[in-house]
Design a protein around this nucleic acid. Sequence first.
DNA 1: AAACGAATACCGCGAATGCGGTATTGCCTG
DNA 2: CAGGCAATACCGCATTCGCGGTATTCGTTT
Lengths: 220, 220
Amino acid sequence: MIARTGEPEEVMELWIVEDDALYRRTIAALLHEIPGMRCDHAFGRCEDALKAIETESAPDVLLMDIGLPGMNGIEGTARVRQVSPSTRIIILTVHEDNDKIFDALCAGASGYLLKSSAPEEIVGAMREVVRGGAPINAQIARRLLAMFTDLAGPRAVSPLTHREREILKLMVDGLTKKQIAAHLILSYHTIDTHIKNIYAKLEVHTRGGAVARALHDHLL
Amino acid sequence: MIARTGEPEEVMELWIVEDDALYRRTIAALLHEIPGMRCDHAFGRCEDALKAIETESAPDVLLMDIGLPGMNGIEGTARVRQVSPSTRIIILTVHEDNDKIFDALCAGASGYLLKSSAPEEIVGAMREVVRGGAPINAQIARRLLAMFTDLAGPRAVSPLTHREREILKLMVDGLTKKQIAAHLILSYHTIDTHIKNIYAKLEVHTRGGAVARALHDHLL
DNA sequence: AAACGAATACCGCGAATGCGGTATTGCCTG
DNA sequence: CAGGCAATACCGCATTCGCGGTATTCGTTT
């Protein structure tokens, strides 16, 4: 995409946000050895990095930790992307729970690595990310895939009958029992009984709960 | 169930489904050189692979093309996963459009590589996948991330206040007004008013509708 | 034929809901 | 400083809901 004429000036500017001073320096030192990369800043807090972006210029790539004092790395990722959309952010953390991964990627991170990654993997990720790729640790990718599969998955385990699903669907659409009865040309009492059964099967006691389960567990 | 063939020897059984005979043989030859891998079968059609799985035993890893005569690779992936859940499937294709990627991963593929990938990347992927990882080409991963970000995109347009979101969240959890009031240490009447306002903003008239919008439009 | 689950229908009652009001207190922003 | 918005609080009433029953019909499975 970027037609280069061999300028030796194409240095990748790279920043780090990592609260553990030791790990921060280790990484910074590691990256400093790589030709074509420069690491001018390494912060212990998101807030500092944000300030630096606004006063000076933004980096090409930002290595971001998640567990940070003050603003966490996910919130930080979103903020950085707001003020500098061109900055690619790579999460580098010990957290490997689905929520963190999901939130970080939703916040706009371009990559997700674990601190257990080999140094070469980290360096490779830098290179990959400026080329437009999204370096994601294979273990993390597995989690991502799992999210996808159960996104379109457990509809078979739905314990509801056809009728019940039909009625649940109408509840999701915001209809009252009376309206559902009219819509399905059934008695009000019938709907009432069905809803009663739906609640029992879903182990909820309110419309809100039932609808939430219906959508969350994707059983429609 | 499927007969377990894994334990005795450390050799990874690997099959290929690829309609282009030349490419198929090239890959098979490539993999055959790798110590610890064995490629007994290479098919041109999913149907043949499926049949082989049922008559013989299933492979540890299956390299699957998408564009195939007869059953396509995505459908095939789903089928193979049904009859042999332990078989990890890696898509190896030229297709890089979002739909294919999405569908393949939803169908249960454990990896997604492009045919333009370097041989080492393919071999690395095999190793990675049996270790529980999900080898995904960085370019593909980028697409995945894009899906995530616009999956959680229109949250900024949430017209709700903090309090309202908080209450809506509790409605999703299936609490009654009274319970919400107790939970937030607020008056019942306050909750009542808030819910009234939430309904107005979301243009719904029932709990079901509100919860559905909350989850569907991802505005919590 | 018997047994069973699903779908249907009906009843009654206490609790919760939806919605129309009004009103006070802060906190911003113009 | 005025006005607006968010959060808070209170009232009343018709409606709806949740849930405890009971009961009939119909298609499967046994």
